[in-house]
Design a protein around this nucleic acid. Sequence first.
DNA 1: CTGCATCCACACGGATACTG
DNA 2: CAGTATCCGTGTGGATGCAG
Lengths: 125, 125
Amino acid sequence: MSDYEKVCLIRGDGGSAIRGILDRIGDKWSLLVIATLDGGRMRFGDLKQHVPGISQRMLTLTLRHLERDGLVSRTSYPEVPPRVEYELTGMGRTLVGPAVSLAEWAIRHNPIIDEKRRAYDARQS
Amino acid sequence: MSDYEKVCLIRGDGGSAIRGILDRIGDKWSLLVIATLDGGRMRFGDLKQHVPGISQRMLTLTLRHLERDGLVSRTSYPEVPPRVEYELTGMGRTLVGPAVSLAEWAIRHNPIIDEKRRAYDARQS
DNA sequence: CTGCATCCACACGGATACTG
DNA sequence: CAGTATCCGTGTGGATGCAG
């Protein structure tokens, strides 16, 4: 793939193809929830425990958005106490790959970026 | 790579390795600026024209952040009128690959997601 | 041309309390 | 257990005006 084609891919038609995906999973919790669900189907409480720091409200909202976009499926069982299980859809699972490549980049470059950042901040003071 | 290792990659130590990268390039403009700069070194005004819809303020802020993180280098020429050129650093260019894989995913699945979303919204009403 | 300062509207997200 | 409702602080980002 040529460099020009790469640019077009990211910028997309009208300059914002990447915007759609970032609006969907660029928020604070979506990718973490997706990664956690990649381990398999899980119920609400377990999910809340396995995503460190997420509030009940944000887990609910995040799951609603992911469900709306068809990335996560929701199954509720009419029992008392209620039981609800969430699971990645087929499309949801295909997102894990690209997300991982970004995560690998992050892990590889985090130390360098932190150093650059400290150096930059030092120059300002 | 096993599924479990994938999850660990995204969730990272303490559950937020992906958070760093999203905080860096998950904002509204960073990836678009990076993709645009992948075409080659460019000055402020050109950049503003080639990133559709970005305001002057946000372009400045975005470039500062990217420069701070060592993803973009800034060169200003002491002339009148002033001329400033921006360019991806080596590290900045390595980000284009993973970003492209995410963009490809977005382009491939955008139509499906839009359809799912419409269906979901229809069920609610 | 480049970019900083200011004001402001709005969405995100945390804390908390309440419900079936 | 699995939410919903409310309040509220904060950050993001757009518009505008000014400066070097």
